[in-house]
């Protein structure tokens, strides 16, 4: 008996639950084709960053304005170009072209943290043919006066603003650091999210002790990181019928299986593909299929959420007791 690997995500029927997350691999047409050939069910396009859009436009304006009409001998210093591509145009063009080259759904990705004019770019991504949009909200509060409520409102407002301008399904990717992730999830869903992507692996800065400079650094995920989304998907699944995507730490088929059991509709992966190559996707899918087969599941749908917090034999394992248990076992 063959296992039905299909799953539903953001209203789309996907061939299997393995999706490639937003990463530079997806930014190359050739690699994207290979990703499809390896069996990935969908791909999230690289993120368009709010700061980058704003910064690029400002930089361009500053460049022209600061060098224009300064001296009698030089009205300006740069030729007017026929067009100024602020990054958005090539991004959209890439989505359009990729859509023609591959048949798997392509999910657009916007990364930002403030409502503003840039949100309108979501519409352009939709028009370029993205099947859905992933809104990656990454906000680092630094002001002690800004409360948790303020931060949550920021998220909700942003989701509502994007929801306003697009009609394609909208997934919201967030980090794990909320006082109440379930409550936050509800607010996001109420604001218009059709799905949640759990979790953002925050780019954590590093220090260069030679130059005393802050250096951005993003290490590949490790399998240990899987357990944060695993827990929260298991907790959220019974409360929400929106799509849940698991991301972070998915390196092996076992990881895919675990997340499906916890309740994920899809799992996304990137780091593993850097380590093992794009063909690793096939192993993830086949490994998952093999496990389901071996264990006698007939479909992904059947296994999905079977180990969620309410379906698991020991729900407390997802809660604080889990912590106690771990300590007891280690000591």
């Amino acid at each position: 008996m063959s296992v039905n690997m299909k799953t539903k995500y953001l209203g789309m029927e996907l061939a299997n639950p393995v999706v490639v997350s937003a990463c530079p691999l997806v930014a190359h047409a050739d690699t994207l084709r290979r990703i499809e050939q390896a069996g990935a069910a969908a791909a999230v396009m690289p993120s368009l960053f709010e700061e980058q859009i704003d910064r690029d436009e400002s930089a361009l304006a500053d460049l022209f304005e600061s060098t224009t009409d300064r001296f009698p001998e030089a009205n300006d210093f740069f030729p007017e170009m026929r067009r100024y591509n602020d990054g958005l145009e090539s991004y959209l063009k890439y989505i359009e072209e990729s859509r023609r080259k591959v048949s798997i759904p392509l999910i657009g990705s916007l990364n930002g943290c403030t409502p503003g004019g840039w949100v309108r770019h979501a519409r352009r991504i939709e028009e370029a043919g993205a099947a859905a949009l992933e809104l990656n909200i990454y906000f680092v509060p630094t002001d002690p006066d800004e409360t948790g409520e303020d931060v949550e409102r920021r998220y909700v407002d942003l989701v509502a603003a994007v929801r306003d301008v697009v009609s394609i399904p909208l997934a919201v990717k967030i980090g794990p650091y909320f006082s109440s992730t379930p409550n936050m999830a509800r607010k996001l869903v109420q604001a218009g999210a059709n799905g949640l992507v759990l979790f953002n692996r925050y780019l954590q800065p590093d220090l260069d002790i030679e130059t005393l400079a802050i250096t951005p650094r993003l290490n590949p995920s490790t399998r240990d990181e899987l357990r944060t989304p695993l827990r929260w998907i298991a907790i959220l699944r019974p409360h929400f019928d929106v799509s849940l995507a698991a991301t972070s730490g998915v390196h092996a088929a076992e990881d895919v299986v675990k997340l499906i059991l916890a309740g994920a509709d899809i799992v996304t992966t990137a780091s593993a593909l850097y380590q093992h190559g794009v063909d690793h996707i096939r192993k993830l899918i086949e490994g998952t299929r093999g496990w389901l087969e071996e264990k006698g599941y007939c479909s992904v749908a059947q296994a999905k959420g079977s180990m969620s917090r309410v379906h698991a034999p020991d729900p407390a394992g997802f809660e604080r007791a889990n912590y106690i248990k771990a300590i007891v076992e280690f000591t």
Partner: peptide
């Protein structure tokens, strides 16, 4: 003037 250079500048 700014149309080509980006919407945020216009705004």
């Amino acid at each position: 003037t700014y149309g080509k250079r980006g919407e945020s500048i216009i705004r």
